[in-house]
């Protein structure tokens, strides 16, 4: 399969190219109050309002300021039966490369700080490692967590 490689929070990540719709230079982000850090913004992608997510929150990485290399990737993901368009941040986008799914290795149970649920596997690229995040699961949980926290808020 083809993947897009990108750098985020000092790590190399790979996103399946089939779910990538486009790559944008950073556009103004509208903060969404009460939505939390993970999907905390909205952007305008040619007239369509698209939620912007920051995977660094999911993986517990340090949040850094945007650089000239920062990009927004617009993705189309199947979440709970629907195709949902979301954008994610990347510190730098490298290129598209072929990846043999059979070479993917599971995440080692010890010695990593990644939540294992959110990683589909580890691949090799240019002598280094790259993480394949499980975007479907990340966003499904993100949506659920959001509604749970809203319920908790109401309960107060």
């Amino acid at each position: 399969m083809d993947v897009v490689t990108l750098r985020l929070g000092g790590e190399l990540m790979a996103i399946p190219a089939e779910c990538l719709r486009e790559i944008l230079e950073p556009v103004p982000v509208t903060r969404v109050p009460q939505a939390g850090n993970f999907i905390g913004g909205l952007i305008n992608v040619r007239g369509v309002v698209v939620p912007l997510a920051d995977l660094r929150v999911t993986f517990g990485m340090t949040l850094t300021e945007a650089t000239p290399d920062t990009r927004m990737l617009v993705l189309e993901l199947p979440i709970a039966g629907d195709e949902i368009v979301v954008a994610i941040l990347a510190d730098k986008v490298h290129d598209v490369t072929g990846l043999d799914p059979s070479t993917l290795e599971p995440i080692p149970p010890v010695g990593t700080r990644w939540p294992p649920d959110f990683v589909r596997g580890i691949g090799k690229w240019q002598g280094g490692f790259m993480i394949l995040p499980d975007l479907e699961r990340i966003f499904t949980q993100g949506a659920q967590k959001g509604s749970l926290s809203a319920v908790a808020e109401e309960g107060v």
Partner: peptide, 23 residues
């Protein structure tokens, strides 16, 4: 989007004259 459907205070979003999004 569904990802923000749980937010109670907003009924939607709109795009302003300068192209930015407002809730």
């Amino acid at each position: 989007s569904r990802l923000h459907a749980h937010l109670k205070c907003f009924s939607g979003a709109t795009i302003l004259g300068d192209g930015s999004v407002a809730l």
